[in-house]
Design a protein around this nucleic acid. Sequence first.
DNA 1: GGGGCGTGTGCTCTTTATAG
DNA 2: CTATAAAGAGCACACGCCCC
Length: 311
Amino acid sequence: MPRINFDLQQLQAFVAVADRSGFRAAAEDLHLSPAALSRRVDRLEQLLGARLFERTTRDVRLTRVGESFLSRARLALDDLEAAVLGVHEIAARHAGRISIACVPTVATARMPQLIEGFSRRLPQVRVRLMDGGMDEVAAAVRTGEADLGLGFSGVTDPALNFEPLLEERYVLAVRRDHPLARKRSPSLAMFAGERWVAVARTSGNRRLIDAGLGSDQRPPPAWLEVGHVSALLAMVEAGLGIGLVPELALHPRHTTLKGLRLTDVPLTRRMGALTLAGATPSPLAQRFLAHLRSAWREIPQAAKAADAASG
DNA sequence: GGGGCGTGTGCTCTTTATAG
DNA sequence: CTATAAAGAGCACACGCCCC
């Protein structure tokens, strides 16, 4: 086995370049000259015997090797930082760091309040939020890059535990000025002739919709396909059509859009927490989970209240 | 083709580690 | 403590790429 003899600075240099996608910006962060940084990364690459970045003068991107090394490097740095913070009385002051991966819907609709509440109790804790598709969330938890994941059920990875916390309806996003927006019991049939917008087939949301609905319950083919729910909502807002979205994605008090619960499309998804199977979550992750459980217990009531107010 | 921006490298000075 | 070697950093500049 080759003797591994690289140092922390090289690791930090590598992570900084990856984060900033370039040497110049990373060098500024590290208070180094670009030349010095270039040499550090170079030395690291020599020690590893592999190129970590493909670089031209315009473009710096991770190689495959670099990509897999990045998550390990982060872990190592985080571990070390945690150890150092530990010396500085982690337990006493609840200092530390938590990384949470979550799907974009949750990131925008719920994370601000969740983090606010969590941080009020543990102000010393630094939080890193990674939002991405369901696959990315699962991967982040699996590799340990995230202490905890928030997403929906349906991931069949034996390495992951899924704790369901909340059942969420899919609703039809329409503009408030849509002629049918005030119907008492809206159904899919009423909207059959509309222009439909959908998220791409690769999206976890889309897979859930396609798998969860029978052929007679499925909305008509979409004329417009977008990558993410946020884009779908923007399209609906612009009057380009209507589409199914998870209820969380649509704030009950949204000024221009409204979510209609279709009586004949009883589609739901289960939101919950992803953790690594067979491993005890870090103390901070456990605190966040506890916070999550109590915060999300209130959401069904809130949704009902919103229904009563708008219905 | 020239200017701007960014990475790579040769050279040199400084700092750090090691042996005596 | 001193002499020496090795490593690290910065300057200046070469080179490549993009945009006008």
